[in-house]
Amino acid sequence: MLDLGNMMMKPALSTAKAIMGGSLLALVLTSPTLASDRPFNLGKIATAEEVAGWDIDVRPDGKGAPVGAGNAIDGEEVYVELCAGCHGDFGEAVDNWPVLVGGADTLDSHDPVKTTGSYWPYASTMYDYIYRAMPFGEAQSLSYDETYQIVAFLLYMNDIIEDDFELSNENIGLIEMPNRDGFMLPDPRPDAQPVSGEPCMTNCAVSTTIIGRARDIDVTPEEES
C-alpha cells in the first residue's frame, strides 16, 4: 500500500498545489542565480567533521547508517542492562513505558498494541530513534555496535530475524517489517464533511441524549486545596 517512490512525490506535489501553487518553489529551485549566490553571507561553512558529528539520522533505505553490526544474542545482554528497566525483560514494558514486543494482529481490535514488531514500518527507524534518544536520559551514548545489537534483539523478539542474524549498516535498509504496508498515503482529509456542504442551522435532526459524562469516568485531576 505504501510505495516509497510514490510517497516521495505525491504528498509533496499535493502539498505544493494546496499551499502555494508551486510558484515560490519554482523560483527558488530553478533560478541559477539564487542557487549559487549567497544573498546574505551569513554563517560559516560546516566542515565534514562537524557534519559527521551531528548527522546521526538513518533513512529507510539505510542511508546514514554508520558502519557497525550486531546480533540478538549479544543484544540481549545490552538490552537487559540498558533497556529492560523501563521496557521489561521481554519488551512487555514496565508501568506506562512503551511496549516493544508483540501486538501482532491487534491493530484492528478494540485495544491495538503498537510495537516495533506490530506497527513500525522500518527497522531503520528503530536504529535512528534508539541511537538518538535512548537510553532515556542518556541520549547518543550507545556505540554503533550496541545500537545494532539492541535493534537485532528487538527484531528477534518480534520474530522478524533469527537470533544469530548479523544486523549491520549493509542490511538494515533491507529488513522487511510486518506492518510495512500498513500505512496509507496521501492524507485523505478533509473528511467527515456534511453531504450538502452547508451545515444545518435550525431544527437539525440530531440526538441530544447524554450517553456519557466525564464526571462519571472520574479520571480528571483534582485541584489541591
Binding site: 516521495m8 539520522d57 533513512r59 529507510p60 491493530l107 506497527y119 513500525w120 514500518p121 522500518y122 500498513g182
Partner: peptide, 23 residues
C-alpha cells in the same frame, strides 16, 4: 525522501478501524 523518524511512523500516524494507519 522522507526520513520515517519514530515520530512520523510509530507516533503521529492515525490508526483507522481496519488496522491501517494514515500517515
Amino acid at each position: 525522501m522522507p526520513y520515517m523518524a519514530r515520530e512520523e511512523t510509530s507516533k503521529y500516524t492515525d490508526l483507522m478501524a481496519d488496522g491501517k494507519a494514515r500517515m
